[in-house]
Amino acid sequence: MTSNEINMIIAGVWQTVYMTLVSTLIGYLIGLPWGIALTVTGQEGLHPNRGVYRVLDVFANIMRSVPFLIMLILVMPLTMLLVGKTYGSTATIVPLVISAAPLIARMVESSLNEVDHGVIEAAQSAGASNLQIIFRVLLGEARVSLISGATITVGTILGYSAMAGTIGGGGLGDIAIRYGYYRYQANILWTTVILLVLLVQLFQFIGTMISVKMDKRHN
């Protein structure tokens, strides 16, 4: 490998990390309230509302059923509007967020639904409002599950970001496609694969470490 190629790969790593983390962050800004709303309006929720739940639920299903590669192309006009171009890692964040948000909403919903109903009842009996229950009970009690969900989400987004390489999305996936696939440079292909694996391992390690540290349910 030439030093140019090495520099390119290093830049690729940063682009991948950048896309993944920024998309996860923005994804949670949308997905977290969405998931909370799903839990709260659900049948067993704090404030059941069939109509609102139905809309949020169907919307999540629709967005989740569009394959990411198609989503990339579908949202191009929006990407153009927001970023001003449709290639490069910043542009890729737009479809990444749109794909990740409903996934995150579902993760959050299932994490929050795990919280023991008795604990919620205890909070209600103490006079807590629904908002207080969401912030002081649900999110706190479900934090381990939420962190696990976030770890899975990061891995998924990282995978998606590599896929965006097919349309010039930047990052390691982009390099793997251009050098490994179009130019048959096996060494670069394998280097990017190994780096992607290492990145997933790293995120998983950090996620697991945080959730273990946070979990006080075991002696």
Binding site: D116, V119, E121, A122, S125, A126, G127, E141, V144, K216
Partner: peptide
């Protein structure tokens, strides 16, 4: 409700606090 305390069979404590 803050003037009516309640305890339960399964204690219902915040396990993460």
């Amino acid at each position: 409700r803050s003037k009516i305390g309640m305890i339960f069979q399964n204690f219902n404590l915040l396990m993460q606090s």
